[in-house]
Amino acid sequence: MPRPPKREPERGDARTRLLKAALDTIRLKGFAATSVDELCQVAAVTKGSFFHHFKSKDDLGVAAAEYWAETTTAFFAGAPYHASEDALERVLAYVAFRKSIITGELAEFTCLVGTMVQEVYATSPAIRDACAASIFGHAATLEADLRAAMKARRISGGWTAESLARHTQTVIQGAFVLAKAGNSPALARESMDHLDRYIRLLFGGPLQEKAQS
């Protein structure tokens, strides 16, 4: 997922301000360490306003995952990697784009839903499911290009466009974990380079030769 910029509290409805505060604060501190009081302070709203919009902190977590999915869907839909006429080139451009947005502090480029689901998958099924919808939904946006690339290059085997699309997200989410463990964005960018090589090896052909020349 992309790294929306750091935000100062904005004028506007309290619910949206709380959701934006959640995106930044949870990616920085994690879900468990983020308190309702802190979110209210960051969003510049009262605690009463929080509970007017959300029944609980978990309810906020579900809404934050859904808001993340909504905003990142729009972000990726407008990204430049869709421009190429060749399906495989679009897939590789997607990987390059993911690498290009790994900049700044760790909390700025890592994924909200990936962060939350690692913490709550066993304790909050509602948040887990909302995170899953975001992650798998984003993976699904790659399937058409992967399927077209497989058809154009007559690729077949024990894998599908759907499984490869999911694997791209496995690498990306894992790259974020490594970056956090090593406190280095460079580790995440390194993983994107390996993902690019892996996809080229799967498809082979003129595009791979062109990349090496």
Rank of each mutant, 00 (worst) to 15 (best):
F54N: 01
G78V: 00
S134Q: 11
F54Y: 05
A43F: 01
T72H: 05
A107R: 07
V95A: 09
G157Y: 08
V117P: 04
L146D: 05
A122E: 08
F109E: 01
A130K: 05
V117W: 15
S134P: 01
A152W: 12
H52F: 10
G104S: 12
I102Q: 11
S84C: 01
F136C: 11
A149S: 09
D145S: 12
Y121R: 13
S49Q: 05
V62C: 04
F75V: 09
E162N: 14
E85H: 10
A43Q: 01
A132K: 09
A122V: 14
G137N: 01
E143L: 14
R90K: 11
A130W: 03
A130H: 02
G48I: 09
W159M: 12
T123H: 07
S84V: 02
D59R: 01
A44K: 02
H52G: 04
F97K: 08
E70V: 00
A43E: 00
L106D: 13
D58A: 06
S134T: 02
R166S: 12
C131D: 03
A79G: 06
L146A: 13
S124H: 09
A74P: 07
A74Y: 08
S49T: 10
P125L: 05
A83L: 13
T46R: 10
L39P: 01
Y67H: 15
T110F: 05
T46A: 08
L164V: 06
L112M: 03
E70Q: 05
D37A: 09
A130P: 13
H82K: 03
A83M: 10
T141F: 15
L164E: 12
R154Y: 11
A126E: 13
A96G: 09
K99H: 11
A152K: 14
A43V: 00
T123G: 14
A32N: 13
F109K: 03
S35L: 00
K57L: 00
V62N: 03
K99L: 06
D129R: 14
Y81S: 08
Y67E: 05
A132G: 11
T123S: 15
I155F: 15
S100A: 07
A83C: 11
E66M: 01
V95R: 07
V42F: 00
S156E: 14
Y81A: 06
A122F: 15
A65W: 02
S56Q: 13
A149G: 03
A165S: 11
L39N: 01
A63W: 11
T73W: 05
I155R: 14
A74W: 02
Y94Q: 10
S56I: 03
V36E: 06
V36I: 12
A130T: 06
P80A: 04
T160C: 02
V62E: 02
R98G: 13
D145L: 06
S100Y: 13
A132I: 12
A144C: 04
L92V: 12
F50G: 00
T103Y: 15
D59H: 01
F50K: 00
S100L: 13
S35F: 00
A126V: 09
L106K: 10
E119W: 13
C131G: 15
V120S: 01
T160S: 09
D59Y: 03
A144K: 14
A63E: 15
A144W: 04
R98D: 04
A79K: 14
